Simulated scan of single mutants.
Amino acid sequence: MGFVKNNGLILGIESSCDETAAAVVRAGGEALSNVVASQIVLHQDYGGVVPELAAREHLRNVVPVVRAAMEQSGVRFSDLDAVAVTEGPGLAGALQVGILYAKALAFGLGKPLIAVNHLEGHIHAVVMEARQRGDSAMELPLLALVVSGGHTHLYLASESGQTTWQYRNVGRTVDDAAGEAYDKVAKLLGLGYPGGPWLDGLAPFGDPKAVPFQFHAIQRREDDRRDADAGARFDFSFSGIKSAVLRYVKSEGMQEAAVARANAIAAHPGLKPADAASFCDPKALGLIASFQSAVVGVLMKQTFAAAEAFGARGVLVSGGVAANRELRRRFLAEGARRGLPVAFPSMALSTDNAAMIAAAAWPKFLAGEFASEGMSAAPQLRLG
């Protein structure tokens, strides 16, 4: 079947984890709509995403979310050039809901379907907004840090030909992702879920030098050593600092205070993270500030070392942890010191959304890279 570009309009659908999202983006650079239905409240009591509950909520939300995105954009389904959907990585059941709906919609409209890697979507969220501003940080090659609750990856991004993007993975976490470490530490201290906003909101009240956390060198795995194309690696590990926080909490007898803090926060629904400082003693606030300082420090160290090693002309940071205020401040300051442009997404596009999926689909549309009828969820999908 041949497809014709009419308006450069792509409908993106995202359902990889706990947000059902839809957006309409023009030519990969102008978001006409961006609608997200969050499940945070549903999963709060569990301290993390429950896959079965997430898939059920996607089933409930996908139709009204897509309808709202189309209405917000002011375009008709017939105006679309393609439908794009997250193929992976993510939760299998959650991904499959979005994929089955997108397949049916694309087939019914007679439009091409484009499969998008969720991680590439995060990269294009920054690219879309930075190019709108005319930022020089978009000169290739770029070093991209994708950091969230499920991922901590470094990619060297370049273009192959005039439209196709290619990626080389030059660093990844060997255990916990940075956002996952934030969630677990927040839970240890009796704070809310997700943990990132709570720790970020409370860190300014504490002493970042109160607890001297350290990150040790990571031993490369055997399969990496055998990989002739692996080259220099800039990997991460966050399980150690998570364990160090647990040991500190136990050695300092902080468990009882953490339980009391959790009860106090539960009794104040809608409480903002920064307003919870009154529930924290100086020892807890120092631990929070020290943890965040250490995590941001290692993210910054590895990212800029990789950028220098591979001759990147700019750095971009995306994913949920990219909303962290200390991370933004320190990365921008280090970029300015090195004369290296650094770009972040807006707060709205830091977390999972569908505008990033539609934006990442645009180069694929121009290159004619359409999904096959047999396309299915790929929970472990890799990029590069």
Rank of each mutant, 00 (worst) to 15 (best):
V4K: 13
V4D: 12
G8H: 04
S16E: 08
V24S: 02
V24Y: 11
R26I: 07
R26L: 14
A31I: 05
A31Q: 02
V36R: 12
V36C: 06
V41L: 14
G48P: 10
E52Q: 14
H58N: 09
N61Q: 15
V62Q: 06
V63P: 00
P64K: 14
A68P: 06
S73E: 09
G74C: 09
S78I: 04
L80Q: 11
D81N: 06
A82F: 05
T86L: 04
E87K: 12
G93T: 11
A94T: 03
I99Q: 02
L100Y: 00
A102V: 10
A106K: 06
L109T: 09
V116G: 06
N117P: 13
G121H: 05
I123G: 07
A125S: 15
V126G: 03
M128K: 08
E129L: 00
A130Y: 09
G134H: 03
S136Q: 12
M138P: 11
L140E: 12
L140N: 00
L143E: 06
S160M: 03
G161L: 05
T163V: 13
T164Y: 01
W165I: 05
R168Y: 07
R172Y: 07
T173R: 06
D175I: 04
G179Q: 09
Y182N: 10
K187Y: 00
L189H: 05
G190L: 01
P194Y: 07
P197K: 02
P197V: 05
L199D: 09
F205E: 14
P208G: 01
V211Q: 09
Q214W: 06
F215P: 00
H216C: 02
Q219W: 03
Q219F: 02
D223K: 04
D227Q: 12
A228V: 14
D235I: 12
G240I: 02
S243K: 05
L246F: 10
K250P: 02
G253A: 03
M254D: 02
I265W: 03
A266Q: 13
L271W: 10
P273E: 14
A277H: 15
P282T: 07
S290D: 07
L299M: 08
Q302E: 07
R313F: 08
V315N: 03
V315P: 04
L316Y: 11
L316Q: 04
L316N: 03
S318A: 15
G320V: 05
R330F: 05
R338T: 01
L340F: 15
V342M: 08
A343R: 11
F344Q: 10
L349K: 02
M356W: 13
I357D: 11
A360V: 01
W362K: 03
W362Y: 15
L366N: 07
G368H: 03
A371Q: 03
A378E: 13
